[in-house]
């Protein structure tokens, strides 16, 4: 602010010298502009509400179909017997840039499985939905195809989803 003492060249811009005479008149261009605007108005007023080009979605009642790749809240996929496919290899928690996945492994008697998660929690408030956990999973155990936005919650605890919650989430396209 010190240079305010210095002489400052003030100016008020004037563009009228560069204008053609009908640009100077205001009215023709303004009328054309209003024409475009009124065209939109009457198209939306008289047109069919479904076909009209309002882009609005009446959200809670009406929902758009998300694309196939859309990354929503997580779920853990299941084996045919209902247990999780996760083998607690920690790949997803390693790959996660937000460090929102916490896993504690446990031994399982089944020789084909060997390991399973004792605790598997995802803090959905920390999650940035980048999809790296899905990329990192060597067992196709974690997916983000639930189509669920993480909703608003009343407490932070509610946002920490545990194993049961993650298993019970269903995929949009079938529940593998």
């Amino acid at each position: 602010m010190a240079e305010s003492k210095k002489e400052i060249k003030t100016y008020i811009s004037d563009a009228s010298d560069d204008m053609t005479w009908h640009e100077r008149l205001y009215v023709p261009a303004l009328a054309k502009g209003f024409g475009v605007f009124a065209k939109h108005f009457f198209r939306n007023l008289l047109g069919d509400k479904e076909e009209g080009d309002t882009g609005t979605i009446q959200y809670p009642e009406q929902k758009i179909a998300y694309s196939e790749r859309w990354r929503g809240a997580h779920r853990l996929t299941k084996r045919p017997d209902g247990s999780t496919k996760c083998v607690a290899c920690m790949m997803c928690s390693t790959a996660c840039p937000a460090q929102c996945i916490h896993i504690i492994a446990k031994e399982v008697d089944d020789p084909n499985v060997e390991k399973a998660p004792e605790v598997f929690v995802i803090d959905e408030l920390r999650c940035i939905f980048c999809g790296m956990c899905v990329e990192a999973c060597p067992k196709d155990a974690i997916r983000m195809d639930t189509g669920i936005h993480v909703p608003a919650m009343y407490s932070r605890e509610e946002a920490v989803w545990d194993l049961d919650k993650l298993i019970s989430n269903k995929g949009v396209r079938g529940n593998v």
Binding site: F37, A38, H40, F41, N44, L45, T54, G55, T56, Q58
Partner: peptide, 10 residues
């Protein structure tokens, strides 16, 4: 409402 109609809104 009228501005919404002209602006492709509801």
């Amino acid at each position: 409402k009228w501005s919404a109609l002209a602006q492709d809104r509801v």
